[in-house]
């Protein structure tokens, strides 16, 4: 079982210290990755956390093992910026970075980002179809080993192993090369909803809501890992957990998330059951405001970690890809030019 915590994007009194404390506790508890929420619009629940990329860089400095997955909405950024920022995080964190692609419509965020020639509400589908493959291609514009920095000969780079992109999309025209060398993971881990037809084909890890209806997604995922987004209403007693659930309006599992309610034993068993039935490979835990993540860390995590059957067989890997059992990808630009029988350069 692979486990991630989604750190809340809002509701903190002191976001910086809270995020660092929560990340440290999650890492100490053996959580595999953190998801850093991000929304470029004000929320009703008070001031938001810093930009996910800044938070990730901060947490990279304050942790050593946990994966750092940044949420980023493709409507409000350019592929070149996104590719270089996530690649830089991968260098800074030594191979721990991931990117969760957000593409749902968000009128409040749209209203913050209109400018001459750009309306984020337009072209959503076309952007979504092109964005991930373009970012992955930009990560491959530098071959491994293109950064030579050989003092003796004065060769700093090998221009023959640095490439521009030759195809143009319907929405994006990006020539490259990227201004960052290839990330340690080759491609930082890309998360996208299994149900999103535009995004899912290019993602490394697929996300689902209610695990009970994950069978179709599982099949479509092939060998790729599937994680369910789950909100745990957990408390020391079953009765109190149900009370918290009721107070939150008794949300049910749906296409966006699964919901579990109970004491620590019940929640642990429910999660374990989904893994054992082969529906999903792990969970991104999205904590309800009434359930501090410390509660889960203290009550549920030790039970999950003690169960041999739930062990993440890749827990010792030192990159985020490794923790998901994903190999380091070959360079697609090199592969394409080899397939086309062209010489490189």
């Amino acid at each position: 079982m692979i486990l991630g915590y989604e750190l809340p994007g809002t509701g903190f009194r002191d976001p910086v210290r809270s995020l660092v404390t929560a990340a440290g506790a999650a890492e100490a508890g053996g959580v595999d990755y953190l998801v850093l929420d991000d929304r470029p619009a004000a929320r009703p629940a008070g001031t938001g956390a810093p930009w996910s990329m800044v938070t990730a860089a901060l947490l990279a400095a304050k942790t050593t093992r946990v994966g750092l997955v940044t949420n980023a909405a493709i409507a409000y950024c350019e592929p070149y910026h996104l590719a270089r920022t996530v690649a830089s995080l991968d260098h800074i964190s030594h191979g721990r970075s991931g990117w969760q692609v957000i593409s749902e419509p968000d009128p409040a965020a749209d209203a913050n980002h209109r400018r001459e020639g750009v309306d984020p509400a337009v072209d959503r589908d076309a952007r979504a179809a092109e964005f991930i493959p373009l970012v992955q291609d930009l990560w491959d514009t530098w071959e491994d080993g293109a950064f030579i920095h050989d003092k003796a000969t004065g060769r700093f780079i090998d221009p023959a192993r640095i490439h521009t992109l030759t195809s143009e999309g319907q929405v994006f025209k990006v020539r490259g090369p990227l201004n960052v060398v290839r990330p340690p993971q080759g491609h930082p881990v890309v998360f996208a909803p299994a149900a999103d037809r535009q995004l899912a084909p290019a993602a490394d890890v697929l996300t689902v809501g209610d695990p009970e209806s994950a069978a179709t997604a599982r099949q479509a995922a092939g060998s790729r890992p599937v994680v369910a987004v789950v909100s745990p209403f957990v408390a020391e007693t079953e009765a109190y957990a149900h009370e918290l659930h009721a107070r939150a309006g008794a949300p049910a599992s749906d296409a966006t998330r699964g919901v579990v309610v109970g004491d620590e034993l019940q929640v642990a068993e429910r999660l374990a059951g989904w893994i054992e039935r082969g529906l999903v490979d792990g969970f991104t835990l999205r904590f309800p405001p009434s359930v501090p993540l410390e509660t889960f860390t203290d009550l549920v995590l030790p039970r999950l970690r003690a169960d041999e059957r739930l062990r993440n067989e890749f827990a010792a890997a030192d990159t985020l890809r490794g923790r998901f059992g994903l190999s380091r990808p070959a360079n697609r630009i090199v592969e394409r030019s080899a397939a086309a029988g062209t010489t490189r350069g």
Partner: peptide
């Protein structure tokens, strides 16, 4: 890449915000 002997610093770098945060 053609800047490698005249201005190598301008070829590539870590992105500024993440570097600044570190």
């Amino acid at each position: 890449p053609s800047l490698q002997h005249s201005n190598p610093a301008q070829i590539s770098r870590l992105e500024p915000y993440t570097t600044a945060t570190a």
